[in-house]
Design a protein around this nucleic acid. Structure first.
Lengths: 343, 343
DNA sequence: CACTGTTTTTTACGCGCGTAAAATTTTAGT
DNA sequence: ACTAAAATTTTACGCGCGTAAAAAACAGTG
């Protein structure tokens, strides 16, 4: 017998000896049909390879299984890594995630959300651009589509926020640096796009104060998402000055630090915590490459796994409660200090 | 007057005073309707914000504007970067690209292609996993769906292949290294997943022979996509041996080189081309971070722009010719040598 | 003006499935 | 064996749009 091509659910229902609406119910949720029915469908599924037409499925469904994951810049390994985690967990939970990147452009971010709207997603996991985002646009979007913010928070928007506790990052790095040597100066971009950067600066100032040390903030110019180059140029300018504010530099994030280290190397400066070293450099994020910098970077790590787990768990809650949570929650995971050679 | 919500094309056609089929034609291709008609539609489009329902659109359309972009590992900045380029160019050309990553897993690659099939894409741009790919599966897919391979070739599959000329990479780096010092040993993974790696080894052997130099291939163990770590561990083992095959190391790709450099740094070896240096290290790909390694990496750069342009151009040809090209073409772009400090 | 070829509109149908309501069967419980 | 509850099937409709075919409007000729 030649198992002819199954063209639609009608035909598949026929060959499996079940009515089409029940088959439809099965594909919507396999556990919503009787066990014996389910087995019969799955047997038929092995003999004939049939998949429901996605477009027809979603056309009339109130709620799809689509999930949009939106990040600000996918070519940044940090976001690539967290997107990878979240994507895997969405699939595990039975969703159909699709990945989008705004590539630093607010117009593209808005365009993504607009086309996402058309996909009737069960939920959207959004790591917004931050300062550059069109806030009122995003606010409107969050009201229409169940959205969870992650990584960077926009006050009050979305059903929940899941991210890392910036204060915890700073407290651990500053604490360690102060215990082990000279108090750090804080190295950051003058106009950071990401709100986390501001939280980190504030946390730095507060922590230094609580330790009774004088804070020093170094602001470097530069725009866009080429953080390494910005850190590098900023380091060159800083290192040309007659006196450094401190011989211990705490970068706002690892990508700046990567650039900073490359400038130090080029200048012939030794970075590390030995007596013979000229500088100590530490940072935050535990960027996938921070293990391979020269020297390897002392940093504070995100709990990637916890953030992505919690984000997807919250998504599931949100979907199951019909797109509305009782209250907007903000979950912040603490950092883990990673001691390497640079400080 | 309160412009009430437009629910569907029917209503939009009514308020714009045009028949629905004509409106449908407009959305399919704005130039397919009379100029005056087009203007009337576009005026109405400004007064009422209406977007056709994607699911309903694609359900009956023979050919959608969807394009799938599939890469083997999106958290690898090289693929993130090329995906970014290709995505932008697809949008420019009027397609709706969606990005997928197999994350090194052949099962996931197959799953992506399967779900892509359901999206009736106008075309698929596929950078396959390579050695790990389920070849017969991909072959079947290419027969059903217009597919263009990029970055890494699978003999005879797809309508065309666009990538970089591995021989050109090797010839330039080997040539330069031989002119400027000791001939290089070639450093690679024992079981590279990517077919480009094999082409590079073969090109290395050939080029060395043509220069009358003795080739030396160093193979390091390790699996998966953590190339930096593999390069690093391989370097440690290599550097422990009493004698190196050469004091000039040519890595198969930049990510291995990044790991190699980090091992050198940790061992206290100076890498560069000065008299006082212990080693020279060069590589291939011009990875986004290769500018920031210590020392900065001498490498051969892909012509990202040419590859992504040509890929999308070929896609357009393919779509316009109805999913079939006269002959399968293979386009290879030469490398550009980037001289930095490591060699 | 009639004549011809091209757009546009009208009309009509179908895509593949979700889903609601009513009729029927199965299951669980006593 | 009987009954209420749960699951399934039947029936029927509609989603929003693509698209083919026929009719009508239009533009360009002589």
């Amino acid at each position: 017998m030649a198992p002819r091509k199954i063209r639609n659910m009608e035909e598949f229902a026929a060959v499996s000896g079940i009515s089409r609406p029940t088959v439809s119910k099965y594909f919507n949720d396999p556990d919503s049909v009787r066990r014996s029915t389910r087995e019969r469908i799955e047997q038929a599924l092995e003999r004939f390879d049939y998949r429901p037409n996605i477009f027809a499925m979603n056309q009339n469904r109130k709620l799809t299984k689509n999930v949009g994951i939106v990040v600000p810049y996918l070519a940044d390994p940090f976001f690539a890594e967290i997107a990878r985690n979240i994507e895997a967990k969405c699939i595990e939970a039975g969703f159909r995630p699709t990945l989008y990147s705004a590539y630093g452009d607010p117009a593209q971010e808005a365009e993504i959300l607009d086309s996402l709207r058309a996909l009737k997603p069960a939920g959207v996991l959004l790591a917004p651009l931050g300062r550059d985002s069109d806030r009122s646009f995003i606010e409107k979007f969050c009201k229409d589509i169940p959205t969870i913010l992650f990584d960077s928070n926009l006050e009050g928007m979305g059903a929940a926020f899941v991210g890392s506790d910036n204060a915890s990052f700073i407290e651990q790095t500053v604490d360690y640096l102060c215990r082990s040597g000279e108090p750090p100066a804080f190295f950051e971009m003058r106009h950071p796009a990401n709100p986390n950067a501001n939280k980190r600066r504030i946390a730095y100032l507060k922590k230094m104060e609580s330790l009774g040390k004088e804070p020093r903030v170094i602001k470097v110019d530069g725009r866009g998402w080429g953080f390494e180059e910005i850190g590098r140029q900023g380091a060159f300018r800083l290192l040309e000055e007659p006196r450094l504010p401190s011989r211990t530099i705490l970068c706002s994030n690892d990508r700046l630090a990567i650039g900073f280290l490359s400038a130090c190397y080029e200048k012939g400066l030794r970075v590390g915590l030995g007596e013979d070293c000229d500088l100590r450099v530490a940072s935050h994020d535990d960027h996938p490459f921070s293990k391979f910098t020269c020297p390897s970077l002392t940093t504070a790590a995100h709990d990637y796994n916890a953030v992505s787990n919690r984000t997807v768990e919250t998504l599931i809650e949100l979907v199951e409660s019909g797109g509305q949570l009782k209250a907007r929650t903000e979950t912040l995971f603490p950092a883990r200090l990673i001691l390497r050679s640079s400080a």
